[in-house]
Amino acid sequence: DNLVIALHSYEPSHDGDLGFEKGEQLRILEQSGEWWKAQSLTTGQEGFIPFNFVAKAN
């Protein structure tokens, strides 16, 4: 599964970004460059996240 966990909170700064809290679990939908499309397992919302704010969940 493409599950990751947030290492830091992220406040969206552009339309289409997905905000999240530290410790939140996300599902990665697309990996492309430094911005990945993800879905929050907490809110169900989708958007782009900075890849270096998350780590693979085990």
Rank of each mutant, 00 (worst) to 15 (best):
L26K: 01
P12T: 05
E46N: 09
F53M: 11
N58I: 15
H8T: 14
S32L: 06
G33R: 03
L29R: 04
E11H: 10
L18E: 02
V54P: 03
F48D: 04
E46I: 15
E21H: 14
G47T: 01
I28R: 01
H14R: 15
A38Q: 01
E46K: 13
G16H: 11
I28L: 12
F53W: 12
T42M: 12
Q39W: 02
L29F: 05
W36L: 12
A38N: 06
Q31Y: 09
L7H: 06
E11Q: 09
E11I: 10
I28Q: 00
P12V: 03
F20V: 09
Q31W: 10
E46R: 09
R27S: 05
D15V: 08
P50G: 01
E24S: 05
P12A: 06
G16W: 15
S40N: 11
Q39K: 13
H8G: 08
I28F: 00
N2L: 10
A38C: 06
L3I: 15
H14D: 09
D17W: 12
E34N: 09
V4E: 03
G33M: 02
W36R: 09
H14I: 11
Q39I: 07
E21M: 11
S40H: 11
I5E: 11
D17H: 14
N52L: 04
G47K: 03
Q31R: 15
K56G: 11
S9N: 15
L7V: 10
T43L: 01
G16C: 09
D17L: 11
Q45R: 14
K56D: 11
A55E: 15
F51N: 15
E21R: 13
S13H: 10
F48T: 11
S9P: 10
W36D: 04
I49S: 00
V54A: 03
Q25V: 14
H8N: 14
Q45F: 07
G19Y: 05
E24K: 02
E34M: 08
F48C: 10
L7P: 06
P50K: 03
N2T: 10
G33H: 04
R27V: 13
A38V: 12
G33F: 01
N2R: 07
E30K: 08
F53Q: 08
W35H: 12
H8W: 08
I28E: 00
E34C: 08
S32C: 14
D15W: 05
R27Q: 15
Q25I: 10
L26M: 11
L7A: 08
S9V: 03
E46G: 04
Q25W: 10
F48W: 15
E34D: 15
N2H: 15
D1Y: 09
I5L: 09
E30I: 04
S32H: 07
L18W: 00
L29E: 06
D1E: 13
K56E: 14
A38H: 00
H8F: 12
L7M: 12
Q31L: 03
D15I: 09
L41K: 07
A38R: 00
F48L: 14
E21D: 09
N2F: 15
Y10G: 03
G16S: 10
S9Q: 08
N2Y: 08
E11C: 09
Y10K: 11
G33A: 06
V4I: 03
L7T: 09
N52P: 04
E21L: 11
Q45W: 04
A6E: 01
V54Q: 01
L26G: 03
W35C: 10
T42V: 14
S9L: 01
I49N: 02
D17T: 08
S9E: 09
G16T: 11
G19F: 04
L26E: 04
Q31T: 08
F51P: 15
P12L: 01
Q45G: 07
W36Y: 12
F20W: 00
L41F: 05
L26A: 00
A55F: 07
G23D: 05
H8Q: 12
A57M: 10
I49R: 02
A55G: 14
I5H: 07
F53T: 09
R27N: 05
Q45N: 08
E34K: 14
Q45V: 10
S13F: 06
K37S: 07
P50Y: 00
P50D: 03
F48A: 09
D17M: 14
E46V: 15
A57V: 14
G19V: 05
F48M: 13
G23K: 02
A55Y: 08
E11M: 06
Q31E: 14
E30Q: 10
K22H: 04
S13N: 13
K56H: 14
R27I: 10
K22C: 07
T43C: 00
D15N: 09
N2D: 10
E30W: 05
E46D: 05
A6K: 00
S40G: 02
K22L: 04
L18Q: 01
S32P: 06
S13T: 15
T43N: 08
Q39V: 14
N52G: 13
N2W: 05
P50F: 01
L3S: 07
H14E: 13
L7C: 07
T43V: 01
F53Y: 15
G23Y: 03
L3M: 12
G33T: 09
S32F: 06
L18T: 03
W35I: 13
E34Y: 13
E11F: 09
N2V: 01
A55W: 05
Y10H: 12
I5Y: 15
P12G: 05
Q39A: 07
T43S: 12
T42Q: 13
T43K: 03
Y10T: 04
V54H: 00
I49L: 07
G44F: 06
A55H: 08
Q25H: 11
G19Q: 08
E24P: 01
Q25E: 14
Q45L: 11
G47C: 00
G16P: 00
G47S: 00
E24F: 00
Q25C: 12
K56W: 12
W35A: 13
K37H: 06
P50R: 03
G16M: 08
G23N: 13
E24T: 02
F53E: 05
T42W: 09
D15F: 11
N52D: 14
F53R: 10
F20M: 08
Q25P: 08
D15K: 15
V54L: 03
G47L: 02
S32K: 15
W35N: 11
